[in-house]
Design a protein around this nucleic acid. Sequence first.
DNA 1: GTGAAGAGATGACAACGTCATCCGAAATTC
DNA 2: GAATTTCGGATGACGTTGTCATCTCTTCAC
Lengths: 205, 205
Amino acid sequence: MSPRRRYDRGVTTRAESAAATRRALLTSAAELLDEGGLEAVTLRAVGARAGVTRGAPYRHFPDKESLLIAVGTQAWERLGERTRTLRADPELSAAGKLRGALTALIGVGRTQPHLYKVMFSNPPGDPAALARAAEPTQTEFLAIVADLVGERDARRYAALLIGSASGIAGMEVSGQLPHEKWGGVSAEELVDILVGMVAGEHRPA
Amino acid sequence: MSPRRRYDRGVTTRAESAAATRRALLTSAAELLDEGGLEAVTLRAVGARAGVTRGAPYRHFPDKESLLIAVGTQAWERLGERTRTLRADPELSAAGKLRGALTALIGVGRTQPHLYKVMFSNPPGDPAALARAAEPTQTEFLAIVADLVGERDARRYAALLIGSASGIAGMEVSGQLPHEKWGGVSAEELVDILVGMVAGEHRPA
DNA sequence: GTGAAGAGATGACAACGTCATCCGAAATTC
DNA sequence: GAATTTCGGATGACGTTGTCATCTCTTCAC
């Protein structure tokens, strides 16, 4: 089998080729995570899907953990962009923006549960890595909450809302919500109640 | 080194000895989890701490996953007992019981973060195992909520409260709460706000 | 006592993360 | 434009881990 020429996946320069490989590793890892969960993400499998061998990832990430952190960070960035877009939408009310942002978070949990878990994980080597990655997104969120309840209570309620939503989504991910015992409530319904309560406490005095 | 006689750890009968070994494996795993996180829980280490060799655990658990599930299940059972005790306490108001139960959950997150994560994990081989283990405890919880908000809304609010509390505790575990940006709010404060809102919505009409 | 049963020890294997080393093409230098 | 450096990727190897097959030896049933 003719060894496909290196530095040659449609791009010519070495730097570009390396960047392409890095991206391929990242998306390969994300795909494997989605399809088979954390246990399916092995450096060998990631490398194979990206078209390289097991040792190649070490040219782009110091170790496996760093690769997973990068995947989770990317997810937080996407969520941050989505939240920023919502905040900038002039058509939406403050409560609407809030609902949208929380729904987006829940959506990740529903459509990509394994990724969702990584986003809230604590890698042994750098337990705060994902927390750092989440910060910009949470700041965006904080701004939305401030618009709804005012600067004074914003921090408190933002922490409450994002914590609650992540927990509710987490329970759905864990399969603890859709039980009939709980009346088949969906995560969205619960968030609606929550937003309603928070907004209710801050109705025009 | 004289090989310590088997079936002889202070007990005589084989059945009792086996049961003792099983308990030792369980507590060894829990200790290792507390001390060094999931990565520290290896069957070899668990066996060594329990005084047996790497293969012995397979006489008591089909695989490593089952051992971890057992550890998490035990934690849910303890939390369930604590919740039951709270519910039966005639000194406490409904809101007080609720606060106590949620605080107990948060306490696990704070004092045993790794165990907490296991309690909400989804083992690849049996993703719903911990959800099943959590059920009795949640039922207990549901009863407390029903006392506070009435049967009609109990399910909804119970799901809301347990989801929110678990998420808030989860954020604290992940190190996403104690940031100064969020005003240094504690998980307990957030739960207080939450309970206040729920109870507030159901004040005597 | 004799046989069956089962807990534990031991050896082995495959898969994994990781490292040291080697290879070769691209970038850089003169 | 030739020599040299740089560096992404391939390859071989090692230690650790989960797991299984096998063996040993104590306890239980009869």
